[in-house]
Each structure stands twice: as structure tokens, then as C-alpha cells.
Amino acid sequence: MENTSYIALSRQTALWRELDMVSNNLANMNTTGYQSEQPMFSEYLIQTRDSDFRLPEKLAFTQDQGSYRDLRPGALEHTGNPLDLAIEGDAYFEVQDQVGPMYTRAGRFTLNPDGQVVTAEGLPLMTEGGTPLILAPNETEISIGSDGTVSTENGQVGKIRLATFDDPNKMERVGGGLLDPGDMQPQAATEFRVQQGMIEKSNVNPIVEMTHMIQVQRAYEASNNLIETEYDRQGKAYGVLAGTN
């Protein structure tokens, strides 16, 4: 008797998580390098007690499989800042966190008092030599090539490390636009271009996400109405059965 309610509740649980994802996407639509998160659902079939009949009945529940990042690149925006960098292609900047290397496509960098090129959170941008990228105080003519080579009026300073991964969707968001690769080993990126003076905008389409949010809210209300209707139906059925005793 409760099967209808259980199915509706499984759908509501999945919709609630989906709504969280949509809300987070909208909150980050202006975050540099942000890649939207999308839900993954599947249909989970179980057999009922009527499975031995000629036409066995199966119940279909909604199973929340998790989520994935939309890896499509965001639009590039020109800023003119020589330390703003965007990546064209499948690659990530490597920065050094307290717990180890992290990766990001948010290329809005600045200089800290020590001359290190750092993220907004103060994490240093790493070079292929495994050291932070450092600029001297008197160096002002900063040029960054499409391959990540950094030069100034005093010559070549270093080359930015850009990495790629076998399955980027296995990387875990850790905040601040950073991605933790976990046990995956980075590989040297080859198919990319670094664009100086530009940033990669979020790939979130606000109109699509707002439409998605409305659809999720309507689906949630429909599931809730189904649960209330089923509750009333069961109440009336129990009342009829009680009256016949």
C-alpha cells in the first residue's frame, strides 16, 4: 500500500539534491573558471510479491547516482591584466596548497609581497620546475606565451605547469575554484593555449539554470501532491475497512 509514497519520496529526495546543485550553479555564475554541476539519476527496478504472476509487476524508484561537472569551457573575457590567464583546451593550472598540489581553471592571479604569482586565496602558481612562479620587484614587462612560458624585460622567468587528467570528473571541489585530484596522477598537458590578459568565465547559463530550477520546483510540488493524495486515499480505505468490521 505504501509503494506509491516510497516511489514519490525517492523522487523528492533526488529533486532536493538537484535543486541544491542548480542553486549552487546560479550562485557561481560569475565565478571565474567555474564549471557547472549536473545531477546523475537512474531508474532502480525491484520485484514485487506479484513477480510469479504471468505479468510480473516491477516498481521503479529514482536512484541518485551523484553528479558530474560540465567540462565545456566558459567564454573568455578580456581584462588587460597581464597576470590574468585563461586556458583554451583540456588543462588546469597547478597551485600549491598546504595539503599538496591543487588544480584550477580560475586564472585571476596577483602578486604577493614576496613576488610570488598567487591566486585570490594566496596559493602560489607552480612552474614546471616544481617551484612557485616569482617575479622580481623591478620587472614590469610581463609576457606569457601560449605555451605558458613567462618572460620579462630581464629574460625568461619560468614556464607555468599545466596538467591534465584521465577523468577530470573524479576531481573533487574543495572551494575557492580548486579541484583536488585525489589519487589521480597529473599528466603534462599538451593540447592547450594560454591566453594572457583574459579570464575564463563560468560556463553557467543563467537562463537555462533558472528554467531548470522552475522545472525542479514544479516536479517537487507534483511529487508532494501525489504523496498527499495517496495518504488521503489510504485513510479513506482504512476507514471503509474499519466500518465493515
Rank of each mutant, 00 (worst) to 15 (best):
E200L: 06
Y34M: 03
A222Q: 14
D20R: 12
R54G: 07
A14M: 08
N225W: 04
G107D: 14
T131Q: 14
R105W: 06
G145N: 00
P124Q: 11
P132F: 00
L85V: 03
R173D: 11
A219H: 11
V204K: 03
I207M: 10
T127Q: 12
A242M: 10
F61H: 06
N154P: 09
N24Y: 05
V194F: 00
M198P: 03
P39D: 08
R49V: 12
E209H: 02
E172N: 11
G74Q: 03
R161W: 00
A8S: 11
A106T: 10
F165W: 07
G100W: 03
A91Y: 10
Q63R: 13
I227N: 14
Y103Q: 11
N3P: 05
V95R: 00
L76K: 09
R17Y: 15
S23H: 08
Y44H: 15
G175M: 02
T13D: 12
F93P: 01
A237K: 12
R173E: 15
Q98S: 14
S42V: 05
I160D: 00
G176Y: 05
A189T: 02
F192T: 05
Q96H: 07
D147V: 03
P56E: 09
D167S: 15
Q38R: 13
P181K: 05
N24L: 07
R11P: 06
G66H: 06
I134T: 15
E153A: 14
D147A: 07
G80D: 04
G107R: 05
Y231K: 12
Y231I: 09
Y231V: 14
S202F: 03
D147N: 15
V240G: 05
G176R: 01
M21C: 01
M210C: 11
G130Q: 08
P82S: 12
Q35G: 08
T13G: 09
A120H: 02
D70N: 15
R161I: 00
T131L: 14
L123A: 06
I7N: 10
Q47R: 15
Q196S: 03
N3H: 08
